[in-house]
Design a protein around this nucleic acid. Structure first.
Lengths: 166, 166
DNA sequence: ATTAATGCAAATAATTTGCAGACTG
DNA sequence: CAGTCTGCAAATTATTTGCATTAAT
């Protein structure tokens, strides 16, 4: 059994949910691949290795369940697709617009104070995604693309455009 | 012509793109509805008022174009759907898990320092979404739901589950 | 035994694409 | 005019759902 599996299965049982082969296989796939931030499809393919008859619907249902249990966290990419990771400490993500890889930023570089007591809102959680180019995708000495000013959430597609207002 | 339209149309022309009725209508719909954070479908319906023959494909293509031009910003909700807003100053969003409304947090309460010089990454932009309940959706005196610890990106669905590891 | 969970296939939903014709510069 | 844009409809993609069957407790 993979590391960390036991406590998580506990959480299933505590809620009167059943432990099935499929759930265990998906959980283990998640644990094994968490830092690769797999898609549902990735997990489906991985799960199939151990459990060939498993269906996509089960993977989606299980991921949704795990999410509600707080076992996994869903991360949405800019293209609308979703990636999953085991729910550990909250952290920010760096998403490379070049290769699409997701990096974890342990220290949450942007976070000054914790999110509480603001406005009239009751805050449960947050998602901080930082977009840019990783070292491999960044060509040395190349200047920052002009199409994507800080604050914009732009995915480059075909040719970048001129943006200056002047 | 709506306020702010002129400068934005400039940006179109600067890039050798054509100004069409459809683009102008969509731009104006965006300017008018920006703080409601409309969906593509919302904008499609709005655009239809002024331009009945417009097709959804045009709305999507135009939004994608405007995004690449830096005119609009796309915000993804937790259910995977997208909302759009005119690209002004970068700011955080508060997304109410109760009613689904999106609020702007001008001051970006979580942001301590600016995102630069970290790791090996070249940072273009970021997206900070905070999830919780707005004042209307929060029942006075009701305790925070147990299903969603800070850092998790969980949408409540049906019954919440117990999460404690103990 | 009960009743939740699964697999399949069909249904959704949101968005994208191919293409012939319409319109802008 | 030339080339960009549009509308339509069909195609994609990711995900959800209905239902009969299987399996966990």
């Amino acid at each position: 059994m993979e590391k960390g599996t036991a406590a998580r299965i506990e959480r299933l049982k505590k809620n009167g949910l059943r432990l099935t082969v499929q759930r265990e296989v998906i959980l283990n796939a998640l644990i094994a691949k968490s830092n690769e931030h797999p898609s549902a499809e990735d997990l489906y393919r991985e799960a199939r290795q151990k459990c060939p008859g498993i269906g996509r619907a089960t993977v989606y249902r299980t991921l949704s369940l795990f999410q509600r249990l707080g076992l996994v966290r869903r991360l949405q990419l800019m293209d609308g697709s979703s990636r999953y990771e085991i729910n550990g400490d909250p952290h920010a993500h760096f998403i490379c617009l070049g290769c699409g890889r997701v990096f974890e930023l342990e220290a949450s570089p942007l976070l000054g104070s914790s999110p509480s007591g603001k406005q009239d809102f009751q805050i449960f959680g947050y998602s901080l995604r930082i977009f840019g180019l990783c070292s491999k995708c960044r060509v040395q000495g190349q200047k920052a693309p002009s199409f994507d000013p800080p604050g914009a959430q732009v995915v480059p597609e075909q040719q970048p455009f001129e943006q200056s207002m002047g």
